[in-house]
Amino acid sequence: MGFEVLFKGNNFIRLLGGLGLSLKISLLSVIISIVLGILVGLLMTAKNSYVKLLLRTYLEIVRIMPQMVLLFLVYFGVARAMGVHLSAEVSAVIVFSFWGTAEMADLVRGALTGIPAIQYESSRALGLTMVQTYRYVILPQIVRRMIPLSINLITRMIKTTSLVMMIGIVEVLKVGQQIIEANRKASPNAAFGVFATVLLLYFLACWPISCLARYLEKKWEN
């Protein structure tokens, strides 16, 4: 079935290394996305309609545009047009953060606008200051709503990192391909064994995360 190539030399370790790189890119992008996403999400609830329109457009563009085109644009396009050479990994993090920020911002916006006005008013009626209201009443509710959703975003990002091999990053899928190429003669069936293993690795990376999301969602449902 082609699984035997995995036990040759350090093939399996290399595969894990590739997975590590995928996770590193997603983790970095997620952290950047959360920080920027909260800021942009707060802006999205602003009253200024120009700001709203601008951010709405940003969100729509990100949703419509395939991430691969964005990757090419940033990695190949920017280097050519502006003479700025970005490494493949930096380009990947930029593109994923650009995407993640938009998604995260929309989650923050949804969570913020979903808090009923009465929550602010009853806090105020109890004598809480604005800062105390956010600290004890509003933010805890937003975090509870957002964490499960943002965890789902993380798993989507991990899966989508398989695209970065297209700009030359040797992540788990690319390592898999290399192993298959190198063993073409000895194990012609390697494609099945290696790709099945890659699939399993993605699953093992994402499954616990999505279990955690489900657990938190259940725990905090209200």
């Binding site: 009923p116 009465i118 009853s122 009626a125 805890p140 509710q141 905090w220 209200n222």
Partner: peptide
């Protein structure tokens, strides 16, 4: 002055 509202305004979390 304490106030109680029409809709249930307890803190859900």
């Amino acid at each position: 002055m304490g106030m109680v509202f029409q809709s249930y305004d307890l803190f859900p979390h």
